[in-house]
Design a protein around this nucleic acid. Structure first.
Lengths: 226, 226
DNA sequence: GTCTATAACCTGATAGAC
DNA sequence: GTCTATCAGGTTATAGAC
């Protein structure tokens, strides 16, 4: 272990400590319901520090979001690039889904995503102009790229049905990341534990089957009419 | 139109006006982020009225929840009773899902569910002891009943896989009810509109296909191993 | 049942000493 | 960069007149 003598007065990474504490509290209670005082108390820093390092509470929340979402999205696109380059014909649906889903589940345990997935899940269900304006630049282009990949994986399908399938599947994904009350409630009544190792595979399996079922049903005469 | 002369001083249903305003604001911003002043202002009633009719803010939120969740759950169970009584062998998976899903979508437009589904969706993703204690008595027994029905619809399946399938599908359901930022974002980039008439059918179709795919994959040798 | 007034406290943000 | 002190305003909840 290398010994570097840092002065006691300047503790390491005040900024990072604030981001970590904010991430956890935002994930637990939401942005509006969390006060800066709770954050600075949890981080062990002074209240004024948050206004010094970030300008406002909203800017802090945006920083918490960008810090981990952008690396994840870069990894998602990197994998999709690789997949699209290596395949000649239609893509395998499960492979496309893996590009989108796995960087979160893998990183969740290997690197330190911390409470970010829960925070992200919460944001994605929240309406409001602030959320849209912060999520749009990161997620907009990403969704366009992945939508193209899904079309290449389901060449027969109506694009509108693909859209709905993605929407439903993302709902499952978000819900899984949130690990919300409902999960605890269901697990409690059925004696089932999180079982995190296989959950990514299960999600992709459900997502792919649902997407195929939905797009095939739409092509069946009378299937979508009802 | 019948003319009943009511005194101007006692406006109709102060209590109901508060519940309506709270439902909308809770759905828009969440419980903690909404103040009683916003609610009473929107309802056009006095601030103290909310503490007279309900005892506290939490009790108001619980009342907002119960007012519409309990009739929905009764209707869900009524339909499931009917389905289980009329069928001899295994149940049709889509029929079971309809019992759970349709009372919300139908009522959403025929009767006045108002902003309740969005409020419900928000609560279901929220952690915390309060949410669990309010949701548990209503949703606990309901989920046990429906879990039994799903087992009767998928007699070959591992119960644990059914559990995960329900969990994922409920995520899609909740996400659909929330109509969150992500939908706007995706719809904006693809020029697709809500299209509410077929959404319930699409959801059931996706849900059923995902559930079948997941439970069949688990029985395939090496499928769930990965 | 409905109102006003108020208690007791928490909020984000900032000014200015060190 | 970090602190204290403070501003101006918002929060739930209640006491008491009408």
């Amino acid at each position: 272990m290398s010994q570097t003598f840092e002065p006691v007065t300047s503790r390491p990474d005040t900024k990072e400590r604030i981001l970590d504490a904010a991430e956890k509290l935002f994930a637990d209670h939401g942005v509006t319901a969390t006060s800066l005082r709770q954050i600075t108390a949890a981080a062990g820093v002074n209240l004024a520090a948050v206004n010094y390092h970030f300008q406002s509470k909203d800017a802090l929340a945006a920083a918490v979001l960008r810090r981990k979402l952008e690396p994840i999205n870069e990894e998602r696109l990197r994998r999709l690039d690789e997949l699209e380059a290596s395949a000649a014909g239609p893509l395998e649906l499960e492979a496309v889904l893996d590009c989108f889903v796995q960087p979160v589940f893998e990183a969740r345990y290997r690197k330190g995503l911390g409470h970010f997935p829960r925070f992200m899940a919460r944001l994605s269900i929240e309406p409001g102009e602030w959320v849209a304006s912060v999520l749009q630049p990161s997620l907009g282009p990403l969704l366009v790229r992945f939508f193209g990949a899904f079309q290449r994986a389901l060449p027969q399908a109506d694009p509108q049905e693909i859209f709905w399938g993605i929407f439903f599947g993302v709902g499952s994904f978000v819900h899984t990341l949130a690990h919300p009350t409902l999960f605890t409630l269901m697990a409690r009544t059925h004696g089932i534990r999180p079982d995190d190792e296989r959950v990514a595979h299960r999600l992709v399996c459900f997502f792919a089957a649902g997407l195929r079922g939905l797009t095939e049903d739409a092509r069946t005469p009378g299937g979508n009419g009802q």
